[in-house]
Design a protein around this nucleic acid. Sequence first.
RNA 1: GCCCAGGUGGUGGAAUUGGUAUACACGCAUGACUUAAAAUUAUGUCCCGAAAGGGAUGCGGGUUCGACUCCCGCCCUGGGCACCA
Length: 803
Amino acid sequence: MNTPHYDHKAIEEKWQERWQEQNLYAAAQDSAKKKFYCLIEFPYPSGEGLHVGHVRSYTALDIIARKRRAEGYNVLYPIGWDAFGLPAENYAIKTNIHPAITTKQNTDNYRRQLQALGFSFNWSREINTTDPKYYKWTQWIFLQLFKKGLAYKAKIAVNWCSSCKTVLANEEVINGACERCGTPTEKREKEQWMLAITKYADRLYDDLENLDFAEKIKVQQRNWIGKSNGVLIDFPLENSKEKITVFTTRADTLFGVTYLVLAPEHPFVSALHEKITNWNTVAAYCKQTSKQKETERVAEGKEKTGIQLVGLFARNPANNEKIPVWIADYVLLNYGTGAIMAVPAHDQRDFEFAKKFNLPCTIVVCPHYPEKTCPILDTAYTGDGHVVASGQFNGQPNINAAKNISAFVHARKHTTYKLRDWVFSRQRYWGEPIPIIICVACGFVPVPLKDLPVILPMIENFKPTEDGESPLAAATDWVHTICPACGKPAMRETDTMPNWAGSSWYYLRYIDPQNDTEFANKEVLAYWTPVDWYNGGMEHTTLHLLYSRFWHKFLFDEGHVPSPEPYKKRTSHGLVLAEGGEKMSKSKGNVINPDDMVLRFGADTVRIYEMFMGPFEQATVWSIDNMIGSRRFLERVFRMHKHVSKENKEETDQILTNTIKKVGEDIERMYFNTAISSLMILANYLEKKTTISRNFFETFLLLLAPFAPHITEELWSMLGHTSSIHREPWPTFDPSVAVPKVVTIIVQINGKARGTLSMPAETDEAHVREAAEKIPLVARHLLKQTIQKVIFVKNRVINLVIS
RNA sequence: GCCCAGGUGGUGGAAUUGGUAUACACGCAUGACUUAAAAUUAUGUCCCGAAAGGGAUGCGGGUUCGACUCCCGCCCUGGGCACCA
């Protein structure tokens, strides 16, 4: 037998080399064609190598990129390395090998792994966030933010990870613990660089609406931003000119306010301490609160604590009632005004607090109006109703009362957000130096453009310090510099940027990666932005995805980019889990190495399998057994070429037409598993033929090519083609053929299927009914009972209702 | 607690607007080929039943000629948020 067998290794290596030589997948910088910018989240090149989850995401967009090229677009599908970050640095601490060296090794490994999978990346545009030519512009963007007052240094209580020995952004704290290592975070007062992302909260929120993002992504971002519309109401203090301003969304319940609560950190607490007769106890409570770890303070089911500021009273502006003022740790300083009006009857937290401390509870919203008897509450009533016990507003629906009561007390409309400013400093080595010089005379002075980048110095000791000082502080030669403003000796900022900095704008650098005078040329930006389709993980929704939208909006405001949003469309992939449904992790020893799979089954099989294993957006469990099916499929395709005739047949074919339609539609919807299933069905059909006409087989290969680029290229060349299959146009179909000429009509009796009819399309009810009644099984039913009603849906179903 | 996604054979899953539930694939069983095995290949494979027939898409109701699909209530799994006024 001289049938060439499917030698995936030889085939894949051969074509990968040729594609590389031909620069087959490079995007043209200057093109009259329509552009398509297709993006995956560039990987962090870890020591563990590529994860099969990366392969899933990259294959999906590779398929889309390849289809777009076939459709005639100028496609940009770039790749790079998000290479700053803690693992490289921690590894350096352990082994004393400089992160730059491990990063180089790891990126080389990743590059080899990605190339072995045949992704159509535009390799000549490869970028690396740790390259000074790259981070020069990361620093430059930071300075633009600084110049606009959006980067500022502030002493605030920050999340501190005692294990990583650095501060964390709110987005990096999960359930009060470090996202990376799981250590519970502490609050520490530190001077930090902050980015004023909250200034963009409203636009980040509102602009989501018109974006083609998966709905769950929008929901999650909206929840994180946490927009809340309400009013500010002033409560004058007794015997004082001061007033406490509260934020509320429930102005309708103002008459039900029985006390006020301030956050323990509220400035009024110490400012008014002369009026507070129990000051010592109050001070003790404040101190105790500040010592608590975040996890303790928000612990589930924790009982409310608090203490009254004895001697301090406020007046309810609605009814002039004298009410006490409390402090409690359930009121947060950095949300709203740090003070609340408590309405125990209509807020569960206030209800619990009032119950514990025996504070009065006045019902002001009644669901059963006008029945005057309101229920005795065992829980707060937070629903709608009519307002009672509220003076001249009695009887109004609470929605109306909210407006009217607000006007009555001169409340000001106010919107507040859960989003906080982004803590941007890290006390670690392996990051972009913050390009600021601290001068005794001039303050914070930006490093001038001509001196950018501020190169990260090579140092010996990467170890972060216990006191939260950056390891860079020890590089005294580097730290001591001259103030660019006054020329006197000054010091460099020693904190570095978080690993989210470089990834906040990387998609812009791919557009013009070699540019040395700007981060990217304006004209080229105008052609390529925004990204047309971006796929990534859900875990980045409130981190990278939100941060980069913020940076992009800022660059847009400054006139540096032409669009207000970076990404037109965002999709997300499901996790690839280990057998047993667990997350793959080094510690569990259940990590699947793509190298082993490529070696054993071939890149095309791995690609097909990862797309076939389940719905793209859902988590799926890895199974080597199931991978065999994908391998067999490709082997059968390979064997099939023997039966391909030399002639083309002009006939159009229903199955082929349907497959062209289905594969095309399914790729667009990311239903890759059903696209492959329909390709398998077509292969099964072709396999049964003794000869396969050439044009049929070629069309089949063109449809399969985005999924399995190597084997299709090999078969394409075996058919005598000298140019690449990946330069061929995407197959089209005749829509009139896609409409079937013969349809299968389901025959039901009382809604149960009893048979099928194969009839010409568009056959009318009378003819279908006639044929249906002749079906033996149907006829038997009709002997005993008579037809009461006939439901007929053309080309679909006939249902005989009998009794 | 709130928000989002999901629950279908032994397994991964399919069913695009309410119209043959279980496509495609894995696994399993039996046969062919083989000295044998692997590979390949043919047939079968939701459950009960000899058949006729009946039952089944997490559970309980409802709407409909007809429900995996729509509505109401509940249970479970995964993800997100979590004292946000």
